[in-house]
């Protein structure tokens, strides 16, 4: 069985982002540190757990982006993935989910993956799209928000539970090939072991250059970025810490909460 895990590199903290007033774009600041999207860590872990349970499983990890994303692919190798693939794009800014999905699909098409895993969403653009788009492009079935995944023996299908509103779960069985987007909490992503870290260091990443410009024009354009709406904020209590505490206590008393 061949598994592809799609991992995205995101900023570690939104505090380091800078709004460029003149261009109307959001840019990474000089202090921005990058890491793997947390939801994708659960997807990598789930792929590794499948490999531990079933014989003959190979796990590839792929990421799309500029050279800095190599660090995130390496992280997947350090966790235990067998092979890392970098689809290199020239641009530093975030790609549209559809462009991303097309790039991954053109890689996946020739490689006969049985299972493609990715996180339920990216922490940065919060689109929750790449998994579903990939499935649509490749003609795979797809299930999102997976919180439980079971496969036995020589599997021809997967038993799944998806998380829906209010913590309820939808139970289903899917055949192969399929795309699953993994919800956080399905497992506890491992820390890389020393032996894997050493192995990953010597491992070559496969490099694929993304065609530039993209073969098809994007289906939508980002007009601009906006700050959150003003005037929505509640009252920010100011003063010394002691004054703030006194004010909060009096507010709580006014509301008969204390």
């Amino acid at each position: 069985m061949k598994i592809l895990v799609c991992v995205k590199q995101v900023y570690d903290s939104p505090d380091t982002l800078v709004f460029n007033e003149s261009s109307g774009r959001v840019e990474f600041g000089s202090h921005t540190v990058f890491r793997m999207n947390r939801y994708d860590e659960y997807a990598v872990e789930e792929a590794l757990r499948i490999r531990e349970r079933i014989t003959g499983v190979a796990v590839d990890a792929v990421s799309v982006g500029p050279d800095r994303v190599r660090k995130t692919i390496r992280r997947a190798l350090e966790m235990g993935a067998d092979h890392g693939i970098h689809i290199r794009t020239g641009c530093e800014t975030d790609l549209d989910p559809l462009e991303r999905a097309h790039l991954i699909a053109s890689l996946a098409r020739g490689r006969r993956y049985d299972l493609i895993l990715t996180g339920v969403m990216a922490e940065d653009d919060m689109q929750s799209q790449v998994g579903g788009l990939l499935a649509g492009i490749l003609g795979f079935t797809c299930a999102t928000g997976i919180i439980s995944l079971e496969m036995h023996g020589n599997p021809r299908e997967i038993l799944l539970e998806r998380e829906i509103e209010g913590g309820r779960r939808e139970c289903l069985t899917l055949g192969f090939p399929c795309v699953l987007t993994i919800q956080s909490g399905i497992n506890t992503p491992r820390y890389p072991s020393l032996s894997h870290v050493l192995r990953a260091r010597s491992e070559e990443l496969e490099l694929i250059e993304a065609p530039s410009p993209a073969p098809s024009p994007p289906l939508l354009s980002v007009k601009r970025f906006l700050l959150p709406e003003e005037g929505e904020k509640g009252e920010i209590i100011t003063g010394t810490p002691g004054e703030k505490a006194a004010r909060l206590l009096s507010i709580l008393r006014e509301h008969s909460l204390l």
Binding site: P14, L17, F19, V26, P97, L98, E123, D124, D125, M126, Q127, S128, Q129, L133, L219, L220, S221, V222, K223, R224, F225, L226, L227, P228, E229
Partner: peptide, 28 residues
């Protein structure tokens, strides 16, 4: 095209939160 988690709209555009809710993007 697919635009998810739309929370506002402009003239032929749609607005959604990005970057952990720090910014909104207006897409067409």
């Amino acid at each position: 095209c697919c635009i998810t988690a739309v929370e506002g709209a402009g003239e032929g555009t749609f607005i959604r939160s990005v970057y952990s809710g720090r910014f909104r993007s207006e897409v067409r």
